[in-house]
Design a protein around this nucleic acid. Structure first.
Length: 471
RNA sequence: GCCCGAAUAGCUCAGCUGGUUAGAGCACUUGACUGUUAAUCAGGGGGUCGCUGGUUCGAGUCCAGCUUCGGGCGCCA
C-alpha cells in the first residue's frame, strides 16, 4: 500500500537534502497552492506541517487522473504524491518532486467558502475557524514553536536534575490564593441536596466535599520537593476570572519549578537559566519559523531573543525600584509609593526604559504577596520575585517559601485562611522542613512574546476564555 | 466587571451632508498565456449592509436597545 510505503517521507525530510537526488519518494499532505502550465504540467505545493516550507510537486498532464482530479485540486485538499525527488529546475526551492502518481484523498467541498486562502488572513477571523487555522503558515509556525518550547523546558529541567511531577487538576482546597476557581460537581443542578441549614450538601457530591479545577500546582509540588529535591509541575491551569484581555485565558499551561535548599537568589538564577535555555532552543531548532515571524509578524522577533540571551539579568530590590520610579520624572496613571503593587506601566518603565533588559525585582511588601511567601528579617517584606522583561512585562513570578511553621501559621491567620484545611501543607513544615523556593512561568504568555503575537488566544490551539469555548 | 471602538460579498475593505440598480482587490468560475512561485491578462457568478425597533417621502448612512468581535483598564500567569 502506498500509504505505508518505506519511501514515505515528510516534507521536511524531502527538502533537507538528506535524501539522495533521484530517489523515489512519497509525500503526503495538503495542497497549499496549485498553478497550471500550458507546457503540460501543474505545480502543486504540498505541506504536511513538518516544517515551514511546502514542497513543489510537478505533476505532468499525462497522469490518468490529471483532468479528472489534479485539475480540481484547490487549497486545503488532501493528497498523496509519489515521484522522483530532484533538484528544482525553477527558482524558489532546492528540491521538487516530479510526480508519477497523485492520489487525491479528499477535495475541498465548495472551494469558494473554504476559509483558508493563500493570502494574509486576520487572526480575528481565524479564531472563528480554529479547527482549520493550523493549516495557515502563521498557526503552523506557532504550533511548531509551541512544541519546541515545551520540549525545551522538559529537556532543560531534566538536564538540571528536576523531576516532572504530575500534580492534580482536580483540587478540594478552595482559596489557593490565585483567583476564582471553576467548580467541579456531579450534583443535579435542578435538584440540589440540602443540609439541615438549607445549604448545599457537598457531602453528597462526587468527592464528598467541594471540588474545583486547580489554579496552581505549586502547593502539591512542594510536597514532592520535600523528597525529590528538584521538581516541577507543568500542566493545564484554570482560572474562572472574568478577565477580558489579550493576555488572559481561562485554561492555560504553567511551568512551576520548586527547589529544595534554595533561597531567593538561587530561585532567580534558575528562572534566568530556564528562560535563556528556552530561547536558545527556539533560535537553534526553529530558524525557519522564527524567520517567518520576523518577516511577517514582528521585525525584531529574532534579535530580541538574541539580546535576551546575551546579557545577565539585572536584579534590584523592590524598595530600590520604588525609588527609581519616584525619581524618574515620569507621569504614571498610578502614583508610586512604597507598599503599592507595581502596575504594568511601572514594570514597563523599569524593564524597557530604565534598565533596557530583563530585570528581577525582589523582596516585595508582605501585605501584597501570597501567604506562603517567606517573611524577611525586616518583617516588612517577603522573599518574592518577579522577572520583568522588555516587551512582555511580568513573565515569571516566584518566591522563597515560608518553611517555618510558626511564621506560616501567622501568615495564614493574617490572610484569613483556615489552618485545618491546609493540614497536609503544614505537615511539610512539621516533618523535616528545609528552605525552598520556586516560581511560575505562564507558558502561553511566553509563547506570545516569542512569536510576536498580540493575543494569547492565538498561542493555544483551542482557547478557552470568558464566553469562549467553541471547538 | 468598567470604559472606548467596530460590524457592508468567502476574506480585506471603500461607500461623502440620508436619495434611483451598493463597489474594489483577493478568492471562486470560464477563457487566453506561461517551468510556474500569493503567476499574469480578459470575461462571469456572488449581498436580507449583524439583529430588533424608531425617525423620515426615502436609511448601508441618523437614533435607541440587543448580539458578536476588537482595544484599554482591573484581576493575574
Amino acid at each position: 500500500m502506498a500509504v505505508v510505503s518505506a519511501t514515505v517521507c515528510s516534507v521536511k525530510q524531502a527538502l533537507s537534502g538528506a535524501i539522495e537526488a533521484g530517489s523515489t519518494v512519497t509525500v503526503r499532505g495538503w495542497v497549499r497552492t496549485r498553478r497550471d502550465s500550458k507546457a503540460g504540467l501543474s505545480f502543486v505545493n504540498v505541506t504536511d506541517g513538518s516544517c515551514f516550507d511546502s514542497i513543489q510537486a510537478v505533476v505532468p498532464a499525462t497522469l490518468a487522473n490529471y483532468e479528472s482530479e489534479v485539475k480540481h485540486l484547490s487549497t486545503g485538499a488532501g493528497l498523496i504524491v509519489s515521484g522522483t525527488l530532484v533538484p528544482s529546475q525553477g527558482k524558489g526551492q532546492s528540491f521538487e518532486l516530479q510526480a508519477s502518481e497523485v492520489t487525491v484523498t479528499g477535495l475541498v467541498d465548495d472551494p469558494m467558502t473554504y476559509p483558508i486562502q493563500p493570502k494574509p488572513l486576520s487572526v480575528e477571523f481565524l479564531r472563528e475557524v480554529a479547527h482549520l487555522r493550523p493549516r495557515t503558515n502563521l498557526f503552523g509556525a506557532v504550533t511548531r514553536v509551541r512544541h519546541t518550547m515545551m520540549m525545551a523546558i522538559h529537556r532543560h529541567l531534566t538536564e538540571r536534575g528536576y523531576f516532572w511531577i504530575n500534580t492534580p487538576i482536580i483540587t478540594t482546597s478552595d482559596a489557593e490564593g490565585a483567583g476564582d476557581m471553576f467548580r467541579l460537581s456531579t450534583l443535579d443542578l435542578a435538584n440540589l441536596p440540602r443540609d439541615d441549614k438549607g445549604k448545599i450538601d457537598f457531602r453528597k457530591d462526587f468527592f464528598g466535599r467541594e471540588a474545583f479545577l486547580t489554579v496552581s500546582g505549586q502547593l502539591n509540588v512542594e510536597s514532592y520537593c520535600m523528597a525529590m529535591s528538584k521538581v516541577y509541575t507543568f500542566g493545564p491551569t484554570f482560572r474562572a476570572e472574568n478577565s477580558n484581555t489579550p493576555r488572559h485565558l481561562a485554561e492555560f499551561w504553567m511551568v512551576e519549578p520548586e527547589i529544595a535548599f534554595a533561597d531567593l537568589n538561587v530561585n532567580a538564577d534558575e528562572a534566568e537559566a530556564l528562560l535563556k535555555a528556552i530561547f536558545k532552543s527556539i533560535l537553534d531548532e526553529r530558524a525557519d519559523d522564527m524567520a517567518f515571524f520576523a518577516e511577517r509578524v514582528q521585525p525584531d522577533a529574532i534579535s530580541r531573543l538574541e539580546a535576551f540571551i546575551a546579557k545577565p539579568f539585572e536584579r534590584i530590590d523592590y524598595t530600590d525600584a520604588i525609588s527609581i520610579l519616584q525619581k524618574s520624572g515620569q507621569k504614571f496613571d498610578y502614583p508610586v509609593a512604597w507598599g503599592i503593587d507595581l502596575q504594568t506601566e511601572h514594570e514597563r518603565y523599569l524593564a524597557e526604559k530604565h534598565i533596557g533588559r530583563p530585570v528581577v525585582v525582589m523582596n516585595y511588601p508582605e501585605a501584597i504577596k501570597a501567604f506562603y511567601m517567606r517573611l524577611n528579617d525586616d518583617e516588612k517584606t517577603v522573599a518574592a520575585m518577579d522577572v520583568l522583561a522588555p516587551g512582555i512585562g511580568e513573565i515569571i513570578g516566584g518566591a522563597q517559601r515560608e518553611e517555618r511553621l510558626d511564621y506560616l501559621d501567622r501568615r495564614m491567620t493574617q490572610f484569613g485562611l483556615d489552618t485545618t484545611t491546609y493540614g497536609w501543607y503544614r505537615d511539610l513544615r512539621r516533618y523535616g522542613t528545609v528552605p525552598h523556593a520556586g516560581f511560575g512561568l505562564g507558558f502561553e504568555r511566553l509563547l506570545v512574546y516569542v512569536c510576536g503575537l498580540s493575543n494569547i488566544r492565538d498561542a493555544i490551539p483551542f482557547p478557552r476564555a470568558a464566553g469562549t469555548a467553541e471547538f
